[in-house]
Simulated scan of single mutants.
Amino acid sequence: MRFSVVDVSDWEPARPEAVGREAKEWIRPPGTPESTREHDWLFKPVVKPANGNRQGEDWAEKLVSELGALLGVPCAHVEMAARDGRAGSISRNVAPDGWNLLLGSVLLGAVDPDYVEGELRPPGRPGHSPEVILRAAGDWDPPAGVHGVDAETVFVGFLVLDAWVGNQDRHDQNWAVLRETTHPGRLRLAPSFDHASSLGFNLLDSRRTALLRNGVGGFAAAARAHRFEHDPGATRSEIPSLVAVARASLELEPAGRLWLERLEAVSMTQVADLVADIPGLSDPAATFALEMLRINRERLLDVG
């Protein structure tokens, strides 16, 4: 059953989105009361850079959200969409009414004195590390609907999902906590969101074809956790890989090994079925995504 592309041309503008480099817009279905925000969706148009290549942020967002569901990692609800003839994706607001969203960049300053807040790309990303985040997460509840697993373990699931799909964009504004607006003001880890920078979304099909011919392993292994703290003098190859960071997080939070158990239980047939359900995905893009997911699965499970 193929996923659909939702036409949101008649959805009502709600507000612009200030976070991020690309233009985005919060919209809501017609007739939604203005008093609520939990029914708002963030429309993110596909980027077309100067070389004219139609990037795949829309299908990457959708596919990763579905892969997260396979693992049981709580993710924002995402659909592929079109607005006024422009392709993109919509991601439902992860903050229900009665809760405010606190980005990681707001939280970490109170946790680690080395954290640099307000700077777009501080060299070495001081203070933004899984160690610091997991230490802070001890005071948070897990996302709504998650039972028997604490917030620390869920965040490890975010890192395992990132490593599986090659998402290198887990910076300090691409994860968040929800704060209850009424007493006692509980804190709750928000579902994972913003997974567009995954699965070679921005490659030309000619590049994908060449990599498939020569081997995707090198490309997959080159995915670095450069959004987390690292030596500011390190070359890119010296920055830990996404897989290395995910596996290291399991030493900090051993309960997170459940994500590897779940990953092992996911078959590549299930993954292939999801990829086949993405509308408009080219054969090279689909084959490349599948091969990357196969390789990263084996790297995480340390097999092959």
Rank of each mutant, 00 (worst) to 15 (best):
G72L: 09
L101F: 02
V149F: 11
V160M: 11
L189C: 08
A144E: 10
N51D: 15
P191T: 12
L159Q: 10
G148L: 13
P142K: 14
E79D: 11
E152L: 09
E66D: 13
E152N: 04
I133C: 11
S65C: 01
L189G: 12
R121W: 15
D162W: 08
P143K: 03
A110C: 09
S105G: 08
F193W: 12
G109C: 11
L107D: 00
N174T: 10
G148V: 13
D58H: 12
L108H: 02
E61F: 00
G166V: 02
W175D: 04
D114H: 15
N51V: 05
V160D: 08
N51I: 05
F158R: 12
D139H: 15
S105Y: 07
V116L: 14
A87L: 12
G98S: 11
A76F: 00
V156R: 00
H195D: 00
L63R: 01
G85S: 07
A82M: 11
D172E: 13
E117V: 14
Y115D: 05
R179H: 09
V106P: 00
H183L: 15
A81P: 04
K62E: 10
Q168N: 04
D169G: 05
V177E: 10
P143I: 11
S129D: 04
L189Y: 02
G145F: 06
A176Y: 00
S89R: 03
G98M: 07
D58L: 10
Q173W: 05
L161D: 02
P126K: 14
A110K: 06
R54F: 07
E57T: 15
L63I: 04
V116T: 09
D194M: 07
V73W: 00
L67R: 09
G104F: 05
G98A: 12
E79L: 05
P126I: 06
R135Q: 11
G56P: 15
V177Q: 07
P96I: 13
A69S: 14
S197Y: 05
H171L: 14
G104R: 10
A81G: 05
R170S: 07
D141M: 09
L101W: 03
L67G: 01
S197F: 04
R186I: 03
D194C: 14
W140H: 14
T182N: 10
N93G: 02
T181D: 15
D169I: 04
P143V: 06
T181G: 14
R121F: 09
D194G: 11
L108F: 01
G104M: 07
Q168L: 08
G118V: 15
E61A: 13
G145I: 01
H77C: 06
I90D: 04
